[in-house]
């Protein structure tokens, strides 16, 4: 993974870079938005404004940003409880996400879902699921709906390497292969399922081969490199849209923060985290590439940095001024009233 920092832009042909200048600028901006948003969320948590569980995505931004660049309207996204980055990547408003974290009426779930439970049908984001691995058959079901309706949309189904040991994940791989469902299984391998390293949890040494018994093609991808992520994503999406069934991507990534806010992170060394941050950070890598190989200036990046900072600050302000849900909301949204 460390090679990412010095890698030159590359593509399928010798001349054409894998990402255009505009695309890489866009990726940089989206990754930075997630990073700054999550830092702010961590801060609001520290102030007691966000309660319960809060799983930050810091370090893993390239995965969801690179893959979302491969999607089109109508495609679906579903993930676990480490979901803030996925929501921002699909274009959900920072305000609505942050206000949900603070449990306010302006949140995507009117404050009734919290960090792990947000949805946007409009943006194709189907959660936000708190039960480890549960989103995988649900994601296969989103793909099933595409299959049933006969469209060429795909369902991006994210889960961690910890969840990859769940029985329902293997049931989903089988079902997806059996019905040739257009689902991309994305294993975000950040090396630790809470405090248990992948080596201590999974006898499978190469998770990209976990779909092999069902004939599902898989790839290992440097998930700290947004260009590599997008390239692999394009291959996966093309495979699915063509009706060839599911595809599996193992994204080798890393989270800098604890599993959740209350994780002392004693299962890994500070040096390990520091090394990843210094040598493989997806945002630093993209920034360096933009400056050195794409002719982008510091001033241009500053504009992006300021825009992102303003969005995040605005979301934090909104999340503190939006009122708590009215007490009458306690008994709403339990059942849809019959027509």
């Amino acid at each position: 993974m460390a090679e990412a920092a010095t890698r030159k832009p590359r593509g399928k042909g010798p001349k054409e870079p894998a990402m255009s200048r505009d695309e890489l600028l866009r990726a940089y901006r989206d990754m930075l938005l997630i990073r700054r948003f999550e830092e702010k969320a961590g801060q609001l948590y520290g102030m007691g404004l966000i309660g319960g569980f809060c799983h930050l995505y810091i370090g893993q931004e390239a995965v969801v940003v690179g893959l979302t660049m491969c999607t089109k309207p109508g495609d679906q996204v579903i993930t676990s409880y480490r979901d803030h980055g996925h929501m921002l990547a699909t274009g959900m408003e920072a305000r609505g996400v942050m206000a949900e974290l603070t449990g306010r009426i302006g949140g995507y779930s009117k404050g009734k879902g919290g960090s792990m439970h947000m949805f946007s049908r409009e943006k194709g984001f189907y959660g936000g699921h708190g039960i480890v691995g549960a989103q995988v058959p649900l994601g296969a079901g989103l793909a099933f709906a595409n299959w049933y309706r006969g469209n060429d949309n795909v369902a991006m189904t994210y889960f961690g390497e910890g969840a990859s040991n769940q029985g329902q994940v293997y049931e989903s791989l089988n079902l997806a292969a059996l019905f040739k469902l257009p689902v991309i299984f994305v294993i975000e391998n950040n090396k630790y399922g809470m405090g248990t390293s992948v080596e201590r949890a999974s006898a499978s040494k190469d998770l990209s081969k976990n779909g092999a018994p069902w004939g599902i093609p898989g790839e290992q991808v440097n998930g700290m490199d947004v260009i590599a992520v997008k390239e692999a994503g394009e291959r996966a999406v093309a495979h699915c849209r063509a009706g060839n069934g599911p595809y599996l991507l193992e994204m080798k990534t890393y989270r800098y923060r604890g599993h959740s806010m209350s994780d002392p992170a004693k299962y890994r060394t500070r040096e390990e985290v520091q090394k990843m941050r210094e040598q493989s950070d997806c945002i630093d890598t993209a920034r360096k590439l933009l400056l050195e190989s794409y002719g982008v200036t510091e001033a241009e990046l500053k504009v992006i940095d300021d825009e992102v900072k303003a969005i995040v600050q605005d979301s934090a302000d909104f999340a503190q001024t939006s009122p708590e849900p009215d007490e009458s909301e306690l008994y709403t949204d339990i059942l849809i009233e019959a027509r």
Partner: peptide
């Protein structure tokens, strides 16, 4: 349905 504030 509840967790989505009535959306889903």
């Amino acid at each position: 349905l509840y967790m989505s504030g009535g959306q889903l």
